[in-house]
Amino acid sequence: MKRYIKNMNMLTKEENDRLGKFKVCVVGCGGLGGYVIEMLARLGIGYLTVVDADKFDETNLNRQILSNTDTLGKSKSITAQERIKLVNPLVEVEPINKRVTKNNCEDIIKGHDVVVDAVDNIDTKIILQDTCSNIDIPLVHGAIGGWYGQVTTIFPEDKTLDILYVSRDKKGIEKELGNPSFTPGLVASIQVSEVLKVLIKRGKPLKRRVLFIDTFEQEYEVIDV
């Protein structure tokens, strides 16, 4: 298929065909999620579940790719579905207009091959990790704050976030610094490359390794944890 010709040389024909059969759940359709969904759809991941309870507001416009003057006030998950219809109609998108909680998390994520953490708070990130671990799904974690970001890929046995957020009442630096336009796309790109490697079982994911990104000093550290 012409649409995927530029994917073809880095993936095999067989890998390309297989992408259309995978199901990925993206939790959060804001800063990270908007870019993650776009890139997964262009890669040709067949089924995307996109989860977010929020509607776009003006404060999202500085960084969330799905927000614009037309989508203000609209549901983030439904906006994501409509966008992907335009980008790649071969991808089936299921929007879920809910906030992930301990009680509904398993129902939302079960049946997926990979889950992407694109949520904006540490509590929900930990709920995602613990539920993914219980039902054996790899989780690609991403987080941003100010000039900084981090990515790690968590396999069910790893529980890497227990090391990243040792005491669970932590407040991320983004509460003070906010988030600019450029870190979401950067961190989301790395998350998508991780999703792809997990799906095709090739390459070296950030398993028990955390990529810590500092765009202020332009330093990129990979830390073994």
Partner: peptide, 8 residues
């Protein structure tokens, strides 16, 4: 030492 980052 690294600070916590938790945004999305």
């Amino acid at each position: 030492l690294f600070p916590p980052v938790g945004g999305g």
